[in-house]
Design a protein around this nucleic acid. Sequence first.
DNA 1: TGAATAGTGTCTTTCAGACAATATTCT
DNA 2: AGAATATTGTCTGAAAGACACTATTCA
Lengths: 235, 235
Amino acid sequence: MDEAAYLAAYDPADFPPVAVAVDVVPLTFSAGALHVLLNRRAEQPARGRLALPGTFVRADEDLDAAAQRALRDKAGLNAPVRQFHAFGAVDRDPRMRIVSIGHMAVVDADTIAQATAAGDTCELLQISGGAVRTASNRRAALPFDHDAVLARALSDLRRDLDRDDWAFGLLPQTFSLRELQALHEAIRGQSLNKPAFRKRLIESGRLEATGEMETGKGFRPAELYRPARINHAAE
Amino acid sequence: MDEAAYLAAYDPADFPPVAVAVDVVPLTFSAGALHVLLNRRAEQPARGRLALPGTFVRADEDLDAAAQRALRDKAGLNAPVRQFHAFGAVDRDPRMRIVSIGHMAVVDADTIAQATAAGDTCELLQISGGAVRTASNRRAALPFDHDAVLARALSDLRRDLDRDDWAFGLLPQTFSLRELQALHEAIRGQSLNKPAFRKRLIESGRLEATGEMETGKGFRPAELYRPARINHAAE
DNA sequence: TGAATAGTGTCTTTCAGACAATATTCT
DNA sequence: AGAATATTGTCTGAAAGACACTATTCA
């Protein structure tokens, strides 16, 4: 049997009973801390609990597209997404075997504030010490394996912090070096040296000065920067 | 409907028609270069061509277990595996929609030589310049999206080279610093400074001197090292 | 003027690269 | 002895941390 004949006779019903989903970790940075946007589940299982937005992957849809659709449908948000890990433990979902491809989404605080204001099914929770905190700073547990998914997202975000420009998405389009340093400190969980941080980031070529200044603060305004347009990966 | 009732009524036949597979990139290091073990496909599609070993994931099997089973069944090899990326483009397989979770496997050269000698369905091909080379050093193209899978495996291997001990698996249980340096140079694609490399690796605490010496070479024997048993991640 | 932060200069420490000198084994 | 590589020492330059000093804005 040649390949064409084989494919004509191939029956997709023979595929194994494993479903594919995506879960999205929508992150943002505000008030000096990372935050994650959680969705209150409308359906069983875990109905009424806060969880990461997710959805099943459609047959004609790429993984990233499914993640963006989940984000749009459950949080009314359009944001760039990036896959970081696949979660496939046999018992991770009570319904059936579901392999979920974990995606991160990065959003600036203003955009995410609009999304949370628009509907009441989403809540923005602070992340502290690698775990989600409620308003009273109590550790909140997520359903399914979503605590592990979030932890892995944060770990991979930290790993790639100095390797690419992905984390810039957590800030507004322009930002001061103080804000950028606060972001790096929140992600890495340690304070950084100011002159060294400034020199390193500016000389990395990943930033571009806008010439504009901060405004409205009660002290000397800082210059605003944006991610450099040029891709330095080609060097 | 409460959660228990919902789960009782849940019909797994409703899951979307997307299949889950694993593809394995079995890597080793010999003769100063990385090599990948490829499997000559016994079935359609791409029958007779060399491809990465892979298999569908069973409903009661974790992702890593599926990758190890593929390696065992198609290459007669037991080796540690590590997931690195999920590949899910809609048209990546001509049969149907298949999302494949890419896994790396690391094997030392002696073990992999036994596996290739045992059967004739596998071939060990050299990797050079990020692509597979035949014996005559010509660039060989792999079926499906396996060229992209391999490229991503190499890229992630390089990224994690100084972050964890995973790449030690590409060497025998004990090895000289010269062999380790050659491995790092092959993975990074650039030559390294010898004294700096030695100092950095020894002082990293990731290595343990065995006190044993190399033998059988026509020159001064080097001390043999092994990966340190202690996990330094807890510091 | 004072508070608060921006931005910079300098000193020190750490670490990698360059280069070379000495040590050890086998033929 | 000679070949080949192991191992170590020293010098140099680059980068980061510590600390402090000057600059700028608003109240």
